[in-house]
């Protein structure tokens, strides 16, 4: 059936990417199919409103509230929804907890699946061929490119996001963070630590 390997209509648009986007945007606006104000609203949402600060809030709460953490590990989707984090590319959430025995790391080898309501739009490297190709086969080498070295006894579990389940890593609470409140803890949680390619900041 799919006679899809030639005659792609996109070739009718200008090849330069910015012009290609502009051309498609123009035709859709002229036909009344998209609203320029809606485009601005979408961009504002992902540029300014939704980002890793959402996930960091969840992680800091899990570090301070054992009951919350338990509920999060059992049914993250409803627990984070109660905090207001739900929607597109975060319809089904699972949280994977790091331990001294097991480090978790998330990838999408087939495309770029990522928990948008908790982390926002994925960074360029997450969508790169190098990360998609290598994270599943040589996670430690990839981690070393992020400056992360794991203890020899720690196993790595890589989650390849092949369905609509989105994964968030719960990092180990850093040493020296004992007296900190939730807000101070959230400031230690980096985006990469929730993907599994980084560690939380250590309090100064």
């Amino acid at each position: 059936m799919p006679h899809d390997d030639h005659d792609h209509p996109h070739a009718l648009l200008p090849p330069e990417p910015a012009l290609r986007v502009r051309a498609l945007e123009t035709v859709l606006i002229r036909k009344g199919l998209i609203d320029p104000a809606a485009l601005d609203e979408i961009i504002d949402t992902y540029q300014n409103k939704i980002g890793p600060q959402n996930g960091a809030h969840v992680i800091a709460k899990a570090w301070t509230d054992p009951e919350f953490k338990q509920a999060l590990l059992e049914d993250a989707t409803s627990v984070v929804a109660e905090l207001g984090y739900h929607g597109r590319q975060g319809e089904h959430i699972v949280v994977a907890e790091n331990t001294p025995e097991q480090h978790n790391m998330v990838v999408c080898t087939l495309c770029s699946c990522y928990p948008w309501p908790l982390l926002g739009i994925p960074p360029g490297w997450y969508k790169s061929d190098a990360y998609r190709a290598r994270a599943v086969r040589e996670p430690r080498k990839v981690l070393s490119e992020f400056g992360v070295t794991l203890p020899v006894e720690t196993a790595v579990r890589v989650w390849d996001s092949t369905a609509e389940i989105r994964y968030l890593v719960l990092p180990i609470r850093p040493e020296g963070s004992e007296g900190l409140n939730e807000e101070e803890l959230a400031a230690l949680v980096t985006r990469d630590s929730m993907i599994g390619t980084g560690m939380p900041r250590v309090p100064s």
Binding site: V21, E145, D192
Partner: peptide
Amino acid sequence: DGAVTPEPVDAPVFQHDWHARALAVTLAA
């Protein structure tokens, strides 16, 4: 595929304006 190149934490969400437009046009369509 070579090495992964991490970005600085403060890298912009959209590297170019047309990236943001491409995402928004796709979602709106």
